[in-house]
Amino acid sequence: MRMNTKTLIAGAGAAGLLGLGLFVTVPALADPSPETPATVSHGKLRERHPGLWQRRGLAARGVHGEATVRRGRDGGFQVVTWQRGEVTGKSGAVVTVRSADGVSWQWTTDAKTRVRKDGEKAQLSAVATGDKVIVAGRRTGDTRTAAVLRIPKD
């Protein structure tokens, strides 16, 4: 069977975007270790702290993003999104987060939203204006629904 070049390029592009989305999102939810010197080369950093080099790279500088990914077996698609920033408002189940670049998104929370503060389980009531947060979830239309809202340790 002969492979269509456009199909091959589209597949490689989709795989690359998914990989980039995972590279940015997954490490962004973890705390970078502040005691590691920034001057350590990537090779030595990998030896002393496996996986830390990823958090020190692009993911540690990212402020927000989204990717379209294929859902499980039904073959549909969904938009997954994340944001790192400061809580600028909270009204009921809606939290407004502003990133360092000025982008402000509202996140709807529900019973499935996992809230973590300082590495421990917490309630939405623990989230206050001014908190630095990392939030991730999915977007449907203009509505972003938080799956995880995390307040990292200072």
Results as ranks from 00 to 15, higher is better:
Gly57Ile: 02
Gly57Lys: 00
Leu58Gln: 14
Leu58Arg: 09
Ala59Ile: 00
Ala60Val: 12
Arg61Pro: 03
Arg61Gly: 07
Gly62Trp: 10
Gly62Arg: 13
Gly62Met: 14
His64Ala: 13
His64Gly: 10
Gly65Val: 03
Gly65Ile: 07
Gly65Ser: 05
Gly65Lys: 08
Glu66Asn: 09
Glu66Thr: 04
Glu66Cys: 07
Thr68Glu: 06
Val69Asn: 10
Arg71His: 02
Gly72Glu: 08
Arg73Asp: 13
Asp74Glu: 08
Gly76Ala: 15
Phe77Cys: 07
Gln78Met: 07
Val79Trp: 08
Val79Ala: 00
Val79Met: 08
Val80Arg: 15
Val80Met: 11
Thr81Pro: 14
Trp82Lys: 05
Trp82Gly: 14
Arg84Gln: 11
Gly85Pro: 04
Gly85Gln: 04
Gly85Glu: 06
Gly85Thr: 02
Gly85Ser: 10
Gly85Arg: 04
Gly85Ile: 02
Glu86Cys: 04
Glu86Gly: 10
Val87Ile: 12
Thr88Gln: 06
Lys90Thr: 03
Ser91Arg: 13
Ser91Trp: 02
Gly92Thr: 00
Gly92Lys: 13
Ala93Asp: 15
Val94Gly: 09
Val94Met: 03
Val94Asp: 09
Thr96Glu: 15
Thr96Gly: 11
Val97Gly: 03
Val97Ser: 01
Arg98Thr: 15
Arg98Cys: 05
Ser99Thr: 13
Ala100Lys: 12
Asp101Leu: 00
Gly102Met: 00
Gly102His: 06
Val103Asn: 09
Ser104Ala: 14
Ser104Val: 15
Ser104Gln: 12
Trp105Leu: 14
Trp105His: 15
Trp105Ile: 05
Gln106Thr: 14
Trp107Thr: 01
Trp107Ala: 05
Trp107Pro: 02
Thr108Phe: 03
Thr108Asn: 13
Thr108Trp: 09
Thr108Gln: 13
Asp110Thr: 08
Asp110Phe: 09
Lys112Asn: 10
Thr113Lys: 06
Thr113His: 07
Arg114Cys: 05
Arg114Pro: 09
Arg114Asn: 10
Val115Gly: 03
Val115Trp: 03
Arg116Leu: 07
Lys117His: 10
Asp118Thr: 12
Asp118Pro: 01
Gly119Val: 14
Gly119Ser: 07
Glu120Ala: 15
Lys121Ala: 15
Lys121Asp: 15
Leu124His: 01
Ala126Ser: 12
Ala126Trp: 02
Val127Arg: 00
Val127Lys: 02
Val127Gln: 00
Ala128Ile: 11
Ala128Asn: 11
Ala128Phe: 05
Thr129Pro: 08
Thr129Ala: 03
